[in-house]
Design a binder for these strands. Structure first.
Length: 585
RNA sequence: GGUGUGGUAGUUCAGCUGGUUAGAAUGCCGCCCUGUCACGGCGGAGGUCGUGGGUUCGAGCCCCAUCCACACCGCCA
């Protein structure tokens, strides 16, 4: 045994015990005749004391230690004369009588502390050192706890965890696949799953009526702070259920997780909002409901008064920022610049302040009488001290998206996006399809197996773009933490979907024949959902990036800077795979 | 594919209108210090200013190209 106790467990009650500890040297404080060493492992920090009076030779040895040396210490637990209230072990220290250096260490390139001096880049290169830091380790501990609670909850509800293969076939639709060449089948490729979607549906056909899996998924698309090329889903599917059953069960799971991991109890049902309302009032299919500032449509109020920008607009919308009338001209100009950035793309912004006396002062005063501005105030339900911000444009959806960005920015600036406040909701009734300019055809908004709303099925023939789906997303604080749908289990309806999506019957058979054939053998009605584990954990941990809750994440361009992957292959490997690599342009 | 921000000591950053020997903090090394816990004191070492080119009497600073990182747009059923 290298140790009898960890560095986080000794207390005042342990005084006079002889113990052996092992861990990393966090810090050495030399005081002349005595030396203090902070010994760290993942459980905590324990102070070791070496004194010239007691053992000069041992004290000299301790003075030779460096940061991150791995050592083993034997000694006696003793009460401190000066306790440290900041750490749980602060009442005791170890009077060392034996010191073994198990391994030396180079000086690490950054400090292993909560407030490290290391930048993101460097910490990723030395991720194994970064993971020694409490702040990062806590995130992985939370992740562990979360997967344990998920398994506990779903097991209690009768779900079976079933593994599905990582090497599967490429499917059209959706994201770009990561592919793996097959040596035994030259010129052919596996694809890594974007999700186990079709496999879990096959499990439903097999009669596993409650399935789940905590599983890696792979999508070869450009990355963001909340997107990794490989990420983890809590993937679930159920048979003999309707949308309501799924929503209830997984809302229950969300509540369970909030309670167990954050101590937050939701007594009420989560809000539900149709996709249509989410777009209308928030300009987003994942609205952040931690604050108000709902959009108010102002076409009737402001159009037709000679202000050509509004007169020519097909959409005019405003938000009311409570108490923000104190914004200076400089701040308003900065906001205007913000929405005019190419990423947002607004042409400009109109603002109106409600003064203390109730009058409205706007940036377009010369076009509008005070009466009209008072009508604006009434429509916006604005009060003295409020600031009204207005965007307009000739593309309703685009303008609403811009207004959404402005709303989020104002929410941020006014401190309304508190990380310790959670506002969950279900967004329901998604459109079945969306038009793709690139492909010049309708694409499935969720995926091609999504069941249309029964009452909209007739529209499949007449107006497919108007069809709504039995699809639902769970959104918390403006983050899509999960989503799912009722699936089609009728092969005829599925064939019709493929037809609308532009598949010939032959192509559909080639790509999805396995699924459609399976459905011929008695597919139960089924549906499911997948939660994004990484997003949940980062939400619970209050992180800005999901990278911080992944042990070994990839950077912005999909590289693992620690392993230096991806990398070229040896010619020998390429030959085996019968692959030719084009020279880089 | 696009937009923006950044790249200076081991690390995090400052560096003015282009002008002497490029600074601070922290880390590291040495000496001192017997109750520290962000210990303290004194001293020291440490630089391809991302890379390549250009403008200039003179470039960390200006221009062009390029690489890398981060954020975002497109993209991500």
């Amino acid at each position: 045994m290298f140790r009898t106790v960890t560095c986080g467990e000794l207390r005042i009650a342990d005084v006079n015990k002889s113990v052996t500890l092992a861990g990393w040297v966090q810090k050495i404080r030399k005081m002349g005749g005595m030396t203090f060493v902070d010994l760290r492992d993942r459980y905590g920090i324990t102070q070791l004391v070496f004194s010239e009076d007691t053992n000069a030779e041992l004290c000299a040895k301790a003075n030779e230690l460096g940061r991150e040396f791995v050592i083993q210490v034997k000694g006696v637990v003793s009460e401190r004369s000066n306790p440290n209230k900041n750490i749980p072990t602060g009442d005791v220290e170890i009077l060392a009588n034996e010191l073994n250096v198990l391994n030396k260490s180079l000086t690490p390139p950054f400090t292993i502390e909560d407030n490290t001096d290391g930048g993101d880049d460097l910490r990723m290169v030395y991720r194994y050192l970064d993971l020694r830091r409490t702040a990062v380790r806590k995130n992985l501990e939370l992740r562990h706890k979360m997967t344990m609670e998920v398994r506990r909850y779903l097991d209690s509800k009768g779900f079976l965890e079933v593994e599905t293969p990582m090497l599967i076939g490429s499917t059209p639709e959706g994201a770009r696949d990561f592919v793996v060449p097959s040596r035994m089948n030259p010129g052919q490729f596996y694809a890594l799953p974007q999700s186990p979607q079709t496999l879990k549906q096959l499990l439903m056909v097999s009669g596993f009526d409650r399935y789940f899996q905590i599983v890696k998924c792979f999508r070869d698309e450009d990355l963001r702070a909340d997107r990794q090329p490989e990420f983890t889903q809590i993937d679930c599917e159920m048979s003999f259920v309707e949308q309501e059953d799924i929503i209830n069960l997984f809302e229950g799971m969300a509540k369970h997780l909030f309670k167990e991991l954050r101590g937050v109890e939701f007594k009420e049902d989560f809000k539900r909002m149709t996709w249509h309302d989410a777009m209308k009032y928030y300009g987003s299919d994942k609205p952040d409901l931690r604050f108000g500032m709902r959009f108010v449509e102002l076409m009737d109020t402001l159009k037709g008064y000679g202000f050509s920008v509004f007169d020519n607009a097909t959409y005019i919308g405003g938000i009311c920022a409570k108490g923000a009338a104190t914004y200076t001209r400089k701040q308003l100009d900065a906001l205007t610049e913000y929405v005019k950035r190419p990423q947002i793309g607004a042409k400009g912004m109109v603002y109106a302040r409600v003064e203390a006396d109730g009058t409205v002062k706007s940036s377009v005063d010369k076009f509008y009488s005070q009466d009209t501005l008072q009508a604006l105030k009434a429509k916006m339900e604005a009060e003295p001290g409020d600031l009204i911000l207005i965007l307009s444009g000739d593309d309703t959806q685009k303008t609403q998206k811009q207004l959404c960005e402005l709303r989020l920015k104002m929410g941020e600036d006014l401190g309304l996006r508190d990380k310790n406040v959670f506002a969950p909701l279900w967004v329901i009734d998604f459109p079945m399809f969306e038009w793709s300019d690139e492909e010049q055809r309708l694409m499935a908004m969720h995926h091609p197996f999504t069941h249309p709303k029964d009452e909209d099925i007739p529209l499949l023939d007449t107006d497919p773009a108007a069809v709504r789906a039995d699809a639902y997303d769970m959104v918390i604080n403006g983050v899509e933490v999960g989503g799912g749908s009722i699936r089609i289990h009728d092969p005829k309806l599925q064939a019709k979907m493929f037809e609308i999506l532009g598949f010939t019957p032959e192509k559909a058979q080639e790509q999805f024949g396995f699924l459609m054939n399976a459905f011929k053998y008695g597919a139960p009605p089924h549906g499911g959902l997948a939660y994004g584990l990484d997003r949940w954990v980062s939400l619970f941990a209050g992180l800005d990036s999901i990278r911080d809750c992944i042990a070994f994440p990839k950077n912005n361009s999909g590289r693992d800077v620690m392993l230096d992957a991806p990398a070229p292959l040896d010619q020998k490997q390429l030959d085996e795979l019968q692959l030719d690599v084009k020279a880089k342009q």
